[in-house]
């Protein structure tokens, strides 16, 4: 995030850090106990999902708090139109975790925006652990930034070509104050407040660099993909849970207990 400030704890409890080989690479957001929403391009480079981990309840990448949880990935569903009609079009990924998230005051789901959501004069924020300067500096602290949405005709004008911005994308950024998202923020949420609830309207996707404010950040439109997201979560079975097993130390103890109970039953 360029031009942001450190986010207070518990302010964005749906924020996810996507780790690849132990390093933060992308953001994501919690949809429910098993599902995280992120960007397809965060998962495209390597199909081995075993190398990815999801962290929730995290504010500082180097400090695990009381509510920090770590999850392995069970499956990743990329949108079928990813890279089909645009180099970074259809940039949506649904990530199913192997085990369920335990909600707390630091770990909560976000709402999804519907196609009919009215974005006029909305209070919108982006969050992430991406680059914080055009020189490539990073921050371990989650950054937050309030930013205005940019209407589609203006975004077309700024990017200078009609085909760059597709109907499944939206633009946001503070052109005057050079506030925008950057590398490492991808997959993270753009949320807006409606009636005291936060709805996710965008997924950080792409932009022409981060340092030129005249090229705003481009986000995958959540309302455009909301039906696909809901349908896929609904039809995908929850992962099989491992059967509970007795620990070697507990086995003999239970055997003794069972023998005692058997003796009592005779009495």
């Amino acid at each position: 995030i360029l031009g942001g400030v450190p986010a207070p704890e518990r302010k964005w409890p749906w924020q996810v850090s996507v780790h690849y080989a132990g390093l933060h690479v992308c953001g994501g957001s919690i949809l429910n106990e098993y599902w995280v929403l992120s960007a397809a391009h965060c998962f495209h480079r390597d199909k081995n999902i075993k190398i990815y981990d999801m962290y929730v309840g995290l504010v500082n990448l180097r400090v695990a708090g009381n509510h920090t949880q770590w999850y392995e990935v069970n499956r990743v569903i990329l949108h079928p139109t990813y890279e089909m009609y645009h180099p970074i079009g259809g940039d949506v990924a649904l990530v199913q975790l192997k085990t369920r998230i335990v909600f707390s005051e630091s770990v909560l789901p976000v709402c999804l925006a519907t196609p009919e959501v009215n974005l006029t004069s909305a209070n919108c924020w982006a969050t992430g652990w991406g680059l914080v300067s055009k020189q490539g500096e990073t921050s371990d602290e989650l950054q937050e930034m309030q930013l205005p949405l940019i209407l589609e005709p203006w975004c077309h004008l700024l990017y200078g070509h009609m085909s760059y911005i597709m109907p499944d994308m939206l633009c946001a950024g503070d052109i005057l104050n050079a506030k925008t998202v950057c590398e490492g923020d991808s997959g993270g949420p753009l949320v807006c407040e409606f009636n005291r609830s936060w709805l996710q309207i965008g997924i950080v996707s792409w932009g022409r660099g981060c340092s030129n404010p005249l090229y705003p950040g481009v986000y995958a439109s959540v309302s455009y993909f909301s039906k696909w997201i809901c349908d896929n979560i609904e039809i995908t079975p929850t992962p099989a849970q491992p059967a509970p097993a007795l620990s070697p130390a507990l086995g003999p103890t239970l055997s003794v207990l069972m023998a005692m109970l058997a003796g009592w039953s005779v009495l």
Binding site: P8, R10, L31, E105, L108, C111, N118, F194, S197, W198
Partner: peptide
């Protein structure tokens, strides 16, 4: 599974807790 919240035009994908409601409000 899908619970629409008409008052805020949002979709909640979980029935166990309210979506989009942090316990700490930003200033």
């Amino acid at each position: 599974l899908v619970h629409r919240q008409p008052e805020n035009q949002g979709i909640s994908l979980t029935g166990s807790v309210a979506c989009g409601r942090p316990s700490m409000e930003g200033k």
